[in-house]
Every structure is written in C-alpha cells, then in structure tokens.
C-alpha cells in the first residue's frame, strides 16, 4: 500500500472524527474564556445527538435532503437550552461549577434515554435514513492531488467546523465582544469596574458552549453513529475538553488539537488496515489524547494555563 493510498484513507477519516470535537471544543472555549468551567460538555453533546436523531427521524419525509442540517439547528437550540441549567446554577446560584457540570452529564443521559423509551418504546432509536453523507466537494475536489486528498470522499460538516473555528478566533480576538468575554474570564472585577456586565457575558459564554456542543453531538450522531442509544456519545465531550486544554484555550489551537485527536481516534479504528500499524496495539492510540493532555498540563508540551478566573463565581463587591 503506497503513501497516497494510506493518506486517502486517513485524511477523510480524521476530518470525520474531528468535526464533532472541533464544534464542542470551541463551545467549551467560549464558556471557559468567560470564566465558567464546563465539564457538562459531554451531557450537552448527548442531548444534541439525541435531539438531532429524533428530529431527523420525525421530519425526514418533510424536509428530504435538508433534514440533517435542520436537525443540527434543532440540536443547537436544545443544547443551548440545557446549558441554561448550568449557567443558572454556576453563575446566579454560585454553585461549584464542576459539580453542576457533573449534574448536567447525569441529567442529559438520563433524560435522553427516558425520552427515547417514552417516544419509541425501546432503548435505542432506529437508524436514520438521511444522515450526512460522503461527498466530493464541487470544484475544490478537482484540484490536482490536494483536491483528491482533502476534498474528495469527505463531509461538508468537517469544513463547516473548520470555518467556525476561524470565525470563533475572529470573534474572540478581533471584536470588542471577544475582548470583554476574555476580560470577564481573566479578571471579572476589573471588567466590572469598566462597566462590563459580568453576569451577562458569562451567560452568553455558557449558552454558546451549549449551542456548539449541541451541534457537535448532532454532527456525531448524524455522521458517525446514525442512531441514538446509551453509548452513542461515550467520552466525546471529555475528549473535546481535552482538545480545549491541549489547544490552550485558543480557538485555532482547539481546532488543531481536535484534528490531532480525530487523527488518533480514526487510526485506532482503521489502524488494523494500515501496514505499519498492524502490530501496534490500538490501546496506545486510544489513550493518546488523554495522556497528551496530561503532559500538556504538566508543562512537558508547552505550558497550558486556564483563564485566571475560570471556575470561581463572581460575587459583586467581594475582594
């Protein structure tokens, strides 16, 4: 098997697995930059996946080919709605943000499975008929070599994810809104003194994280799993959190980390087909994202520091 053939398998698969991580990781980025730790990303992805599948199954006859895209919008809205729970607890009621995130995770999987049984009378949904399917992107796939490697046999959602990463970078680092968001996460009291509404900015950060994680779950469900059950999302949200840290709380870093983790995940699945990986146990690829994250935090791969006020509620007038 030549290098070209290997790349033709690996690159589309990497893009496929990275897309949900990019969306969700960016969501986490908005929340943590505003100073709210969100380990509920996993639960938000679960609810996004659930919503997308149910919407897809219900409306596929009406919407036809547009179904998966509209379903993503639905997943986005429901993800944002669930994240209000986290926002209210951790911003307004000063709850421990990690505990509130744990509650979101427990709640999401419980509620989603409860509703699946309520709607369909069984533990798992049917397989959707119209998911995101592999396409050759018009024009771009005609470029010699690159077109075939990057833009053939791939998914639109992966490129939307990458575009959203650049958009998020622009919003966070080139607009007044982004500056305020980061200020609230680094030093809320200073931001408050300058007239920025800390509570409002943090609510926006958390809502964005819910919306993006909902999309991430929806993308995963409609391009990888194609149905919803108890194990549909198993650790994707936490891996997105890992990408957020490995990417050092910077949207483009998050995108890069998510692509790398997508690469590791896809290798662990397709590795047995590749000549040079046949003999390496795939456990190394499975744990790679997590081990690398720990190393990054420890400072072996460039120090990763969280936004300073991340994890602490802001109480007006308290020093």
């Amino acid at each position: 098997m030549g290098l070209m053939e290997i790349l033709l398998i690996v690159i589309p698969s990497t893009l496929l697995w990275a897309a949900p991580l990019i969306f969700t990781g960016l969501g986490g980025n908005f929340s943590e930059s505003s100073g709210v730790v969100n380990i509920g990303l996993e639960g938000l992805m679960v609810i996004g996946a659930f919503t997308a599948i149910v919407f897809n199954l219900t409306f596929v006859d009406v919407l036809g080919n547009w179904t998966p895209w509209v379903a993503l919008l639905a997943a986005m809205v429901v993800g944002a709605l669930l994240s209000i729970m986290h926002a209210v607890a951790s911003i307004t009621f000063r709850a421990d943000q990690v505990v509130s995130g744990v509650a979101i995770n427990l709640f999401a999987i419980g509620a989603a499975l409860f509703l699946v049984k309520f709607i369909y009378g069984k533990g798992q949904t049917d397989i959707i008929q119209k998911g995101f399917s592999k396409v050759d992107i018009p024009f771009l796939s005609d470029i010699p070599v690159i077109g075939k490697l990057l833009f053939s046999n791939t998914y639109y959602t992966s490129f939307v994810a990458i575009a959203v990463a650049f958009l998020a970078w622009f919003v966070m680092f080139k607009t007044p809104f982004g500056l305020r968001l980061r200020a609230v996460g680094e030093h809320p009291m200073a931001a408050d003194t300058m007239g920025i509404n800390v509570t409002r900015m943090r609510y926006i950060g958390v809502l964005l994280s819910g919306a993006l994680a909902g999309i991430g779950g929806g993308v995963y469900a409609q391009s990888i799993s194609s149905d919803f059950g108890h194990a549909t999302i198993s650790g994707q949200g936490f891996m997105a959190l890992a990408a957020l840290i490995f990417g050092k709380w910077h949207p483009l870093g998050v995108m890069g980390a998510a692509l790398f983790f997508g690469f590791a995940q896809s290798l662990s699945i397709i590795g047995s087909n590749l000549p040079f990986l046949e003999n390496i146990p795939n456990v190394y690829l499975l744990i790679a994202p997590y081990v690398l994250t720990i190393l990054a935090l420890t400072g072996f791969i460039g120090r990763a520091d969280a936004p300073k006020a991340s994890g602490t509620p802001y109480i007006k007038g308290k020093r």
């Binding site: 709850a95 505990v99 509650a103 709640f107």
Partner: peptide, 9 residues
Amino acid sequence: ALIVFFVAA
C-alpha cells in the same frame, strides 16, 4: 441528577 443539581445550587 436533579438532586445533585439542587445540592450544588
């Protein structure tokens, strides 16, 4: 999950 949530909040 709700009990955890209410204790947290």
